[in-house]
């Protein structure tokens, strides 16, 4: 790899710049009459160590925001700085390198490779990071242990329950020690008992490892586990503040 000035290698001192800084971000789909503003001037700043829940009705722009924060998509206008780097002008490959080095994803639909064992799924991001096979296996096993899946390393997704599959996905997301973990409706396909267990796992990862977590959800019960809640409406941030603790909801502090 001749790194050169690729985004992945353009390291910015953490602490100075905010981890994520969106200002006036617009995302427009379609042209002319049929133009749709998925984001219409969104401002958002996320710092290291936060656990942010993003909420809002469907069509409010929360998923689009998530894709932009996750460097899967780029804003039509406005500025998105990730660790101080302007993402809007990066090439596809530079975006890929950003994702490779700093981001971890967890999806509603788990998105594991079918007919592939848990440990091989977890190893996948390390393959693209050129980690040697032995080290890869060691890190993957450690990540699986961290999400409580010892003894299931050789199971394929079909042999695991939904909650276990999502844990494998989380292990895959954290195996690279990312700056930020993006979770898109991570409990959407899980029953409530498994959802609670999963949220507790995320809270633990946030607290013990200091992994920044941004989670899109429409369930207030799940959002209650976060430390900050951002609500989107009509492509803009409608409210942003510390998560209110409702009685009986969530976890013991």
């Amino acid at each position: 790899m001749s790194a050169g000035a690729t985004a992945g290698e353009r390291r910015v001192e953490p602490g100075r710049a905010p981890l994520v800084a969106l200002s006036g971000v617009e995302k427009v789909y379609g042209k002319g009459e049929s133009q749709v503003y998925a984001l219409a001037g969104a401002d958002l700043r996320i710092d290291n160590g936060e656990f942010v829940a993003i909420m809002g009705p469907s069509g409010s722009g929360k998923s689009t925001c998530m894709n932009i924060v996750g460097c899967l998509d780029q804003p039509t206008s406005g500025s998105y700085r990730f660790r101080g780097v302007e993402v809007g002008t990066l090439s596809r490959d530079e975006l890929a390198l950003l994702r490779r080095h700093y981001l971890g994803f967890v999806f509603q639909g788990f998105n594991l490779l079918a007919r592939t064992s848990a440990v091989e799924n977890v190893e996948l991001p390390l393959v693209y990071r050129r980690v040697a096979a032995g080290e890869r296996r060691r890190l993957a096993l450690a990540a699986l242990a961290a999400v409580g899946l010892e003894g299931r390393e050789k199971h394929t997704p079909a042999e695991l329950s939904g909650g276990q599959q999502q844990r494998v996905a989380i292990a895959r997301a954290i195996v690279t020690n990312p700056s930020i973990l993006l979770a898109d409706e991570p409990t959407g396909n899980l029953d409530s008992a498994r959802s609670v267990a999963l949220m507790e796992l995320l809270v633990a990862l946030n607290r013990t490892r200091g992994i920044t977590i941004v989670m899109v959800t429409h369930e207030p019960d799940m959002a209650a586990y976060s430390t900050r809640t951002v609500v989107f409406r009509d492509g803009k941030v409608a409210s942003d503040g510390p998560t209110s603790r409702r009685a009986g909801a969530g976890h013991a502090p």
Partner: peptide, 16 residues
Amino acid sequence: TREIGIRMAIGARAHE
């Protein structure tokens, strides 16, 4: 297609 999407999300570049 979905597998390709996963690989890209994880950080695979086009040429990879």
